[in-house]
């Protein structure tokens, strides 16, 4: 089972890989999170300004912010340290 942190990281990674942002339906597939849970998490990430929402003619798109990218960098740095010690991040 993935931890909350891991799910958030998966969402951010999915957004990082989508240059023009991603729709919620794309994120459900890419981050492998149920729709209801994903909307809750996206609201939380929007509040924390880790992602931003852009409205297009096609619908609502999400994009990673500078803060989100920084958090992802920190996560990669510290998770590799923890993994080297055989630990999994909760």
């Amino acid at each position: 089972m993935r931890s909350q942190m891991k799910i958030i990281v998966d969402i951010l990674v999915a957004l990082e890989n989508s240059e023009n942002g991603a729709k919620i339906t794309d994120l459900v597939r890419k981050a492998n999170v149920p729709y209801v849970r994903l909307t809750e998490l996206l609201d939380e990430l929007l509040k924390k300004k880790l992602i931003e929402s852009i409205k297009n003619d096609d619908g609502n798109y999400y994009r990673i912010t500078k803060n989100g990218a920084m958090l992802l960098d920190e996560y990669r740095k510290f998770s590799s340290f923890a993994e080297n010690l055989g630990l999994e991040i909760d």
Partner: peptide, 21 residues
């Protein structure tokens, strides 16, 4: 050093793994 690196990680990511470490 490892201990303080863990607390540094906790300050960034707020993960219990780091505070335990």
């Amino acid at each position: 050093i490892i201990s303080f690196y863990f607390i540094f990680g906790y300050s960034k990511l707020k993960s219990t793994t780091f505070i335990t470490g």
